[in-house]
């Protein structure tokens, strides 16, 4: 029993526990906090797998940005936390049954498929240094540059759509409409009045 395995077991147990807490706690704030914990824990596990950059990103971006966003929404929405535990308990056996069935099936699959896997199937990757971050950056900016750009566009899209969806015009605000200003013609403004004396 080496230290690696012990770490894995401790953190995975905690991870499962926090995940369960995420879906069971009745208070969304608690759920969000537990989600943050689960992200932290999985970041540790990713470190074990040698994905240093991604584990840092997970904490920075997820915990720092996305989860904060969640918390903000929870606070903004003024949700009354009504406890509907009756329905919850009613459906719990079904949930557990599905959980077990699905787990058994997928685990059975994974064991069957990956038990005798050839770990050296893919080895022709270009490694420029020992650092995971350097390697990843190299790969991102050479081979996957187009995908990287598209990812940026997707983020931009996310920003725009989030703004468009939530943006509300305040009727009290006074503002100019440039389109209308440009399309105004002479006839709308000028009125030629002929000699009134006639």
């Amino acid at each position: 029993m080496n230290i690696e395995l012990i770490t894995f077991f401790i953190f995975s147990t905690l991870l499962i526990f926090t995940c369960i807490k995420v879906i069971t706690s009745s208070n969304p704030v608690l759920s969000a906090i537990n989600l943050v914990f689960s992200f932290f824990l999985s970041a540790v596990l990713w470190l074990l797998l040698g994905a240093e950059f991604l584990s840092i990103i997970l904490i920075l971006v997820y915990v720092g940005a996305v989860m904060v966003l969640f918390l903000f929404v929870v606070m903004m929405l003024d949700i009354n936390i009504a406890k509907k535990t009756a329905a919850y308990i009613k459906y719990l056996p079904l949930g557990i049954a599905v959980f077990i069935a699905f787990n058994i099936l997928i685990i059975y699959f994974f064991i069957n498929t990956f038990e005798n896997i050839d770990y050296n199937a893919v080895k022709n990757i270009e490694i420029i240094s020992d650092s995971n971050t350097q390697n990843l950056g190299y790969l991102l900016f050479t081979k996957y540059i187009i995908e990287f750009e598209i990812a940026g566009l997707i983020l931009l899209l996310g920003i725009i759509s989030a703004i468009v969806l939530t943006y509300r015009k305040n009727p009290k605000n006074k503002y100019q409409n440039p389109t209308k200003q440009i399309s105004a013609s002479k006839k709308d403004r000028l009125k030629i009045i002929t000699d009134l004396k006639e």
Binding site: I16, C19, V22, I23, P28, A32, Y88, Y91, N103
Partner: peptide, 21 residues
């Protein structure tokens, strides 16, 4: 481990009657 997390989240989707968050 990942399977267990996945199934927990699935169970969360259909057990959850409280809110969309």
């Amino acid at each position: 481990l990942s399977t267990i997390i996945f199934t927990i989240s699935i169970a969360g989707i259909f057990l959850n009657r409280k809110n969309i968050l």
